[in-house]
């Protein structure tokens, strides 16, 4: 999935404009000419200019319409499903770890991840368990990172 120079130039220009509009409400420090809006506006300006430059250059090199070249994997529903599965796993960890506690959630996330990549199930479970305990011991106990705990399985904490 690769956008052409012209497309990226247009997107960049639009991004610059969007940042500029969003920055209008930011006010200067009382009694000063500069403040919260200075930086976003400056970023918007250089972003917009870069976008314009890219558009001009692409047009000069013969591009006429914004285009998009699709990579091979976008043709495979299974590959797209695997992409989405990574995001789902992360969201699931964020949502479930405060409820279930670190250990069960981590084991589940890693096991499912490995199953998606077609690791044999018993290998997946064993490795997930070992890795989760190792992370919990090193981060949680040695380095005092407050990993999510819950009353469920809390004796392992």
């Amino acid at each position: 999935m690769r956008v052409t120079d012209l497309t990226l130039g247009l997107l960049t220009l639009l991004g610059g404009i969007a940042i500029y509009i969003s920055a209008i409400e930011f006010q200067a420090i009382p009694g000063q000419a500069y403040g919260a809006g200075t930086m976003p506006r400056a970023v918007a300006l250089v972003t917009g200019l870069t976008g314009l430059f890219m558009i001009v250059k692409a047009v000069m090199e013969g591009e006429r319409l914004p285009g998009l070249n699709l990579a091979d994997w976008t043709q495979s529903p299974a590959a797209i499903a695997r992409l989405v599965s990574v995001l789902v796993l992360i969201v699931a960890y964020i949502a479930l770890s405060p409820v279930l506690g670190f250990l069960p959630t981590a084991v589940a996330v890693m096991t499912i991840g490995m199953l998606i990549l077609r690791v044999r199930w018993w290998i997946a479970v064993i490795i997930a368990l070992v890795a989760a305990i190792a992370i919990q011991q090193s981060f949680g106990r040695l380095l005092l990172v407050p990993l999510p705990r819950s009353d469920f399985l809390s004796f392992l904490w």
Binding site: M114, I127, A128
Partner: peptide, 19 residues
């Protein structure tokens, strides 16, 4: 193997970002 390593790395990413 990559297919074993990557889910574990993902876990490390999450714990590291949390920490």
């Amino acid at each position: 193997p990559q297919k074993v390593l990557m889910p574990v790395i993902l876990m490390f990413c999450m714990v590291g970002s949390f920490a």
